[in-house]
Simulated assay, not measured.
Amino acid sequence: MSIIYFLIGCSIILALVFLGAFFWAQRHGQHDDLYTPSVRILLDDQPADETKK
């Protein structure tokens, strides 16, 4: 029975670590640019052999 208390404690600590990482990412602007990743594939450079012509 004591292992269940240990596992619950570990899961709560792990959840708090992930929650802290999420709030850190939000505060440092990791999710600000939502437009560029969606159109990046449309703006790819042409292959090198086609640009030499």
Rank of each mutant, 00 (worst) to 15 (best):
S38M: 14
P37S: 08
I13P: 01
M1H: 01
S2N: 07
A21Y: 01
G9C: 01
D45C: 04
V39H: 13
K52R: 12
M1F: 00
I12C: 10
F18W: 03
A21W: 03
S11C: 09
I3G: 06
Q26F: 06
H31Q: 02
D33L: 10
L7P: 00
V17I: 15
G20M: 06
F18R: 09
R27Y: 07
S38G: 13
Q30V: 06
R40E: 14
A25P: 00
S11P: 00
I3L: 08
C10D: 04
S11T: 10
A15E: 03
R27A: 14
G29M: 03
H31P: 00
I8K: 06
D44Y: 12
D45P: 01
I12Q: 03
C10H: 00
I41Q: 14
T51S: 09
K53Y: 13
F22R: 12
S11F: 05
A15S: 12
D49C: 14
G29I: 02
E50I: 15
D33I: 12
I3Y: 01
K53V: 15
P37A: 13
P47E: 14
T51I: 15
I13F: 10
K52D: 10
I41E: 13
M1K: 02
D44R: 15
V39T: 13
A15M: 09
D32H: 08
I41S: 14
Q46C: 04
Q26Y: 08
H31K: 03
I3E: 09
L19D: 01
L42V: 05
V39N: 09
F18C: 13
W24F: 15
S11D: 07
L7N: 06
L19W: 05
A48N: 07
L14T: 08
I8P: 00
